[in-house]
Design a protein around this nucleic acid. Structure first.
Length: 364
DNA sequence: GAATCGTGGTT
DNA sequence: TAACCAAGATT
């Protein structure tokens, strides 16, 4: 794509792109959300908290992140604290948040920051981009919000707002270059961080996916999509592929411990789905039910009359539940975990859900 | 460039 | 209720 194409959408945008940021910032100064990671007017942003929040908020809602952010920063308040943490503790602390590569990259980045950057984040977008877990969005957002750099920050909110503001017809994801170019034309030289956060607040509260509140929108008079009458028609998107089903088996293997029953947990491989997380043993996840393939022990497995279904991003997993007691040696590497304190194991939601179902059936 | 990678809330 | 979606990154 040449330069002419990349700026073409802006030609159909607001009559005066430079009028957008002042209108939005005026709105932001009156309606900004008060969030635990957000510096208040006059305060200096804490780069650690800005970074942590940006990573936690990737594909994750504010409501979910808020309590997790507070707990995390109480446990690890600084880069140095996090860099010194044990990986198992970090992964367990992330349990339930999903996209677990974020936690691995968070710890890896903290250690790079401690070892190579004097315990502080670099302040330019380009330097940030080289750290683990920093993609185009996060590097731009941290540079702008934590360090006041002018950076073009484009998340899903900005994509939606800008697609409407400029009435961009091209469907996502092909529209990304045009949307970024259009965002560049309205990004101010000062207060770029506030501008980015204002766009996100606007997308969350006003320019919503469905039924946008255009009557309350500070940008309505600049919005080509609104002028066309159907702003919620933008952005257009390619249809998504449907989610296939896969089937697996959960093995609930117990033994008598000194302080009550214990269950076998394993650690999943570092790469791939739920990588590096503690888990209940399972066999393969396949289109057909695998039965007792890859059982962690030779024992008298009993099938429970229940099934757990869990939706991942690109497939739905249906899990059969079987229980057994360990007598001899087990064929899988793992750790025996007291059933009574299973909540502290840091299991991903799919396994927490299965454990809850199994314990409920055994108790009942 | 297309797949992969979680989960919980909303409609 | 099933579909859609969220402060995306990595390979």
């Amino acid at each position: 794509m040449d330069a002419k194409d990349s700026i073409a959408p802006a030609a159909d945008g607001p009559a005066d792109p430079h009028a957008v940021a002042p209108a939005l910032l005026h709105w932001y100064d009156r309606h900004r959300r008060d969030l635990p990671w957000r510096a208040r007017p006059g305060e200096t942003p804490d780069p650690y908290r800005v970074w942590l929040s940006e990573v936690m908020l990737q594909q994750t809602t504010v409501a979910t992140v808020r309590p997790r952010f507070i707990a995390w920063t109480q446990r690890w308040p600084t880069f140095a604290d996090l860099a010194a943490a044990d990986e198992a503790d970090v992964m367990a602390a992330w349990a339930g948040l999903g996209y677990y590569a974020r936690a691995r990259n968070l710890l890896a980045a903290a250690r790079v920051i401690a070892a190579e950057h004097g315990g502080e984040l670099p302040c330019t977008e380009e330097a940030l981009r080289r750290l683990p877990g920093f993609g185009a969005y996060t590097a731009a957002a941290v540079a702008a919000i934590a360090f006041g750099e002018r950076a073009v920050v484009v998340d899903a909110n900005v994509e939606r707002v800008v697609a409407r503001l400029f009435a961009i017809q091209v469907p996502l994801p092909n529209a990304r270059p045009a949307i970024r170019a259009a965002t560049d034309t309205i990004t101010p030289d000062t207060r770029a961080g506030d501008f980015a956060q204002a766009m996100m607040d606007l997308g969350q509260a006003i320019c919503t996916v469905r039924r946008p509140k255009c009557l309350l929108c500070p940008l309505a008079s600049h919005c080509v999509g609104h002028a066309h009458g159907e702003p919620d028609r933008f952005p257009t998107k390619k249809p998504k592929a449907d989610r296939p089903h896969r089937h697996g088996t959960i093995f609930w293997l117990t033994r008598a411990g000194d302080d009550g029953p214990e269950v076998l947990l394993v650690r999943r491989p570092d790469r791939g789905l739920l990588g590096g997380m503690r888990a209940l043993p399972t066999g393969p996840w396949e289109p057909a039910r695998p039965g007792l393939v890859d059982a962690p022990a030779e024992t008298d497995w009993r099938a429970l009359n229940a099934q757990v279904s869990h939706g991942f991003t690109h497939f739905t997993l249906d899990l059969a539940l079987v229980t057994g007691e360990a007598h001899g040696p087990i064929s899988a590497a793992g750790e025996w975990w007291p059933v009574a304190s299973l909540d502290e194991a840091g299991l991903p939601t799919v396994f927490a859900k299965a454990a809850r179902a199994i314990r409920g059936m055994e108790a009942g």
